[in-house]
């Protein structure tokens, strides 16, 4: 008896066919990558919950505790004295984007170790297109998380103007692209999944704490001029400020320029690193087929 595997799988020969991809094919590919990322996210409910629990804990516990100590005086974009919860909310949005960006870096290292990254990289579509699609998929997932967080924060009394929820979308997109690009660049440098703890200690925490996410820059300057300089050199500060101003229907042009510039820099670096002719991966040897 013929086993199922011995039956003939019909394969058309496309030797002579020209493989020209039109816009439709690119959209199919993009949709496929975004859809897979969304499926992975939905399948990992713990990831979704933990991505929300972290900022909510900061909002409910940390911010509530510091409310009496750290009221924030009138600084742009706020037109009145604001509660600490209100001040910290854009920073927590940034926190979600930061962790999500690094999570996507973790997932790329995981994909590389498990091999599924290779199925992406051997697609006939241009490498830059595949990486940008993967990056945008990660950004879309993180923006979704931010909106869920903002909805919960609304019930906690953090109520920015309604227009802010619309204005914040491009700001979240740009900040998300910057942080996911950084994550992608880091993923090309990390050799093993175990090394991701280093990213937590040397990238995520310093970026988060040495920024305007938790305290206004003028307060940091009063406390430590050196820390203030570090905060000013930290691109995450500008991501937070971009989101903060957008939430109140305004544009912080300096932050916009820095975030766009850093996005281009990090994304260019990531595409370079994953380019087989230039990048770092081809100089690395992993036995047994892991690349």
């Amino acid at each position: 008896m013929m086993s199922p595997l011995e039956s003939d799988i019909r394969v058309s020969d496309n030797r002579g066919k020209r493989l020209g991809f039109g816009l439709g094919n690119y959209l199919i590919c993009f949709y496929g990558i975004v859809f897979r990322e969304a499926l992975r996210f939905l399948n990992q409910r713990e990831r979704f919950i933990s991505s929300l629990v972290r900022p909510l804990l900061w909002l409910f516990v940390f911010a509530a505790g510091f409310r009496q100590v750290l009221g924030v005086s009138i600084i742009p974009p706020y037109k009145t004295y604001v509660l600490y919860e209100v001040y910290i909310t854009p920073g927590l949005c940034g926190m979600i984007l930061l962790f999500s960006g690094m999570q996507s870096s973790l997932s790329m290292v995981y994909d590389r170790e498990m091999g599924s990254m290779r199925t992406l990289l051997v697609s006939p579509f241009p490498r830059w297109f595949l990486l940008v699609s993967k990056l945008l998929a990660g950004v879309a997932v993180s923006i979704l998380q931010v909106y869920v967080f903002l909805a919960v924060a609304w019930f906690w009394g953090v109520k920015p103007p309604a227009i802010g929820y619309l204005f914040i979308l491009p700001a979240l997109f740009l900040a998300g692209v910057m942080l996911c690009s950084l994550g992608m660049l880091l993923s090309s440098l990390i050799k093993q999944l175990e090394n991701f703890a280093g990213v937590m200690n040397f990238v995520i925490f310093p970026m988060y704490f040495a920024s305007s996410a938790l305290y206004p820059l003028w307060r940091i300057q009063e406390a430590s001029p050196l820390l203030h300089k570090i905060c000013l050199a930290n691109p995450f500060t500008y991501a937070v400020e971009l989101v903060r101003f957008a939430l109140y229907g305004q544009v912080d042009w300096r932050s916009l320029v820095v975030v766009v510039g850093c996005s281009l820099l990090f994304l260019g670096g990531a595409i370079f690193a994953y380019d087989p002719s230039k990048g770092l991966l081809s100089r690395r040897r992993d036995g047994g087929g892991n690349s």
Binding site: G32, L39, T119, S123, L130, G288, N290
Partner: peptide, 28 residues
């Protein structure tokens, strides 16, 4: 290509894995 290491996504279904691959080749 069939790689030496398993390259299927364990958390997705067979269909989801195959549909993802099809999209990477621009197949509707």
């Amino acid at each position: 290509i069939v790689f030496q290491a398993r390259t299927l996504d364990l958390d997705l279904s067979i269909y989801e894995n195959l549909a993802y691959h099809a999209s990477l080749h621009g197949i509707g």
